[in-house]
Design a protein around this nucleic acid. Structure first.
Lengths: 326, 326
DNA sequence: CTGTTAGCGCCTTCAC
DNA sequence: GTGAAGGCGCTAACAG
C-alpha cells in the first residue's frame, strides 16, 4: 500500500539507486532514464519517506526550536523569522515551549536529541551550566536566539542590551528629563532585562533614578502596581522594558491623573505591533525581532552546511523610533 | 561514538530485544534484568533514536501543525494550546506557516506526509477541494482547528460563527443601536469572517445596516480607510471582525471627532490580550483560542489512540464579555 | 552513467 | 521471561 523507492525502481525499470539519484540530484543520470523515473514517481504518487531517509543519511532536515512561550508576541515574531529562513533552506521546525523552566528546557534538549534534529535554536531567559552540559551531551549545533551568553560559549544572535539601555536613558536625558524611572520585571526573571537595567543605570546613576520591579512583566499585574506608585508622581521620564510594560505605564500614569508625554515622557523596548496600535503611540527602542529569528536560523544553516562564518556572536542593531509617547 | 541499543544490550548482558522491552514497557521483564538494563542505559548515556524508532514502528509521535501565520496573536495562542496537550500525550509539533496560500498549503500537507507525521492539525481560511484531495492522498488523520468545513467532511473544532455574528448584532440591538456597521476583511479572505457576516446580516437586514470591507483586516490599513468613512458619521453601533479591527475602529472614530461608546458602541470578535490592554477596553465576542488548540489536539489523540469519539465536529462556545467600548 | 550491497537503529513477530 | 532474525525505506560507498 505505501509506495517505496523499490516500487518506483521496478516501474521505471532501473535500480533503486538510480531513483535515489534522480530524487536527490546526487549524481548525473541520463536524461531518458531520469524522465522514466520521474514518470514512474508521479504515476505511483511516490513520496520519499523522510524518516527512512533520516535514518540512512543521519540528517533529518529538522531544526529544534525551544522557546519560553510562543503565545508571547515577541517570541511569535521570532519564530516566524526562523520558519521563513528554515523553509528557504528546506528545513522544518519542531517547536517546543519551555515556560522558561530549567528542568523542562534541559529535558527538551534531550528530546530534540532523540529526534535527531540537525540543529537547535534556543531562546531562554538565563543560560546556565545545565544548558551547556545538555548541549554538549547532545552534540548538536546550537544557536542562541535573543538570549545572552555573557561568556560567549555558544553562537548567538542578539542586540547589545546594555547599550540599548544606555541609549534609552540618554534619549530621555536629552529630552530634558530629570527624574527617570525604569519599569521592568523582577530581577532574575530575564537576564536581558537585567542587562538593560545595567545600561540604564550606567547613565543615570548620579541622576535621580529609580527602578520599579513589576513581577513577571505582564500588563495586568504591572498596571495595578504602577497605579499606586504614580499616585504621588515625582518622575518626568520613564523607560519600560517592553511594549507591554510601556503601555501599562501609560495607562497607570493616565489613571493617576497625569498625562503622557506632557508630564512623563515614555520610551519602551521591543516595538511589537502593540506599540503602534495604542494611543499615544509608543516611542521605542526597536528590536529586530523577525531578524533575530531569521539571522539565527541563517547562522545555523551556515554551521550545518560548513559555510564560512565570520562571527559566531552576531550583534544586531537596535534603533530608536520616536513616536508620540515622548 | 553514538550509543545504540546494541551497546546497552552488551553492557547489560542481555539481547537488544530485552532492552527494547524495558524501554517501551512492551512486555514483562524480570526485575533484576530490568535493573541491569536501566543501569547500563544511564551508564552509557543512551538515548533511543526516535528516527529509527519511527521507521521501525511506523509512528513518529509527531504532529504536523499548519497555520497561516504564527505571528498573529490569535494563531499563536492556538498553537500554544496545541503544544500543551501534545506534550501531555508525548507528541511533538512540526510547525509550518502557509500564509493562507493554497499551493503552499497543499505542498505542506505533502511534506508532512513525507515526514510521516502521525496526524495533522490544520488551520486555514478557506477549505477547498485541493485540501481534501491532499489529505486523502496522504492518508493521515486530520483535525481542522478554528476553520470551517461546511460539509463536515473532516473532523473539526470551531465555534458557531454565524450564531456568534447574530449574537453580536443582537447585543447592539438591545443596547438600542439603530444604525450598525460591520467592519471586516474583504470577502473571500476568511470564510470565518464571512460566516460572521452572514450571522450579523440575518439579524440586521431589515435594519439600517452596512458592511465596511477593509482589505486584509490589518490595523494600519483599516484605520486609514475608516477615518475617511467616519468623517460623515452616521452609525451608532459597530461590530468588528477582530480585536485589531475593533481597535482600528475605535481610533478612527475618535480621530473623526466622535467618541466610544458615547457616539458609537463597539463590539469586537476574538478577545486576544489586546482587548484588555487598550482604552476603552473592548467589549468582545470571546473566542476560546487556547481551547481551539487544546481541544483539537485532544480530539486528534483520541483518533490516534482509537479512543471512542462522540462527535467529530465539536462546536465550542463563544461568549460576550462586556467592557468599556459599548 | 547505473546496479549491487551494506548498513542506519530500532521494533516485532517467532521460537525457546 | 528472553533471544534470534527479519524487516522498516532509504543513502552511500563500491563496482562495473
Amino acid at each position: 500500500m505505501t509506495v517505496t523507492i523499490y516500487d518506483v525502481a521496478r516501474e521505471a525499470k532501473v535500480s533503486m539507486a538510480t531513483v535515489s539519484r534522480v530524487i536527490n540530484g546526487t549524481a548525473v543520470v541520463k536524461d531518458d532514464t531520469k524522465r522514466r523515473v520521474l514518470e514512474a514517481i508521479s504515476q505511483l504518487g511516490y513520496r520519499p519517506n523522510a524518516v527512512a531517509r533520516g535514518l540512512a543519511s543521519k540528517r533529518t532536515r529538522t531544526i529544534g526550536v525551544i522557546v519560553p512561550d510562543v503565545s508571547a508576541a515577541f517570541v511569535a515574531e521570532i519564530v516566524r523569522g526562523i520558519e521563513d529562513i528554515a523553509t528557504m533552506y528546506d528545513y522544518h521546525i519542531v517547536l517546543a515551549n519551555s515556560d522558561g523552566q530549567i528542568p523542562r528546557e534541559v529535558s527538551l534538549i534531550g528530546t530534540m536529541w532523540e529526534k535527531q534534529v540537525d540543529g537547535i535554536l534556543y531562546m531562554t531567559n538565563a543560560l546556565r551550566g545545565e544548558h551547556i552540559e545538555a548541549f554538549e551531551d547532545a552534540q548538536i549545533p546550537v544557536v542562541l536566539c535573543a538570549t545572552e551568553d555573557t561568556e560567549r560559549r555558544i553562537p548567538s544572535v542578539n542586540i547589545d542590551n546594555r547599550r540599548a539601555g544606555a541609549d534609552a536613558a540618554n534619549y530621555l536625558l536629552e529630552k530634558g528629563c530629570k527624574r527617570i524611572a525604569f519599569v521592568t520585571s523582577d530581577e532574575g526573571i530575564s537576564v536581558i532585562a537585567d542587562h538593560r537595567l545595567h545600561g540604564v543605570r550606567r547613565q543615570l546613576d548620579n541622576h535621580n533614578f529609580r527602578v520599579l520591579h513589576v513581577g513577571e512583566g505582564r500588563y495586568e499585574h504591572a498596571i495595578q502596581l504602577l497605579r499606586d506608585e504614580f499616585q504621588t508622581l515625582n518622575i518626568d521620564g520613564l523607560i519600560a522594558a517592553s511594549d507591554e510594560l510601556g503601555l501599562a505605564s501609560v495607562h497607570a500614569i493616565q489613571d493617576s491623573g497625569h498625562s503622557v508625554p506632557e508630564d512623563v515622557r515614555i520610551i519602551a523596548f521591543d516595538n511589537t505591533r502593540l506599540a503602534t496600535m495604542v494611543r499615544p503611540e509608543l516611542t521605542v527602542i526597536a528590536q529586530p525581532m523577525y531578524d533575530f529569528g531569521a539571522v539565527s536560523m541563517r547562522l545555523l544553516t551556515k554551521m550545518l552546511l560548513d559555510e564560512p562564518v565570520e562571527n559566531y556572536t552576531v550583534t544586531l542593531l537596535h534603533n530608536i523610533i520616536e513616536r508620540k509617547s515622548s
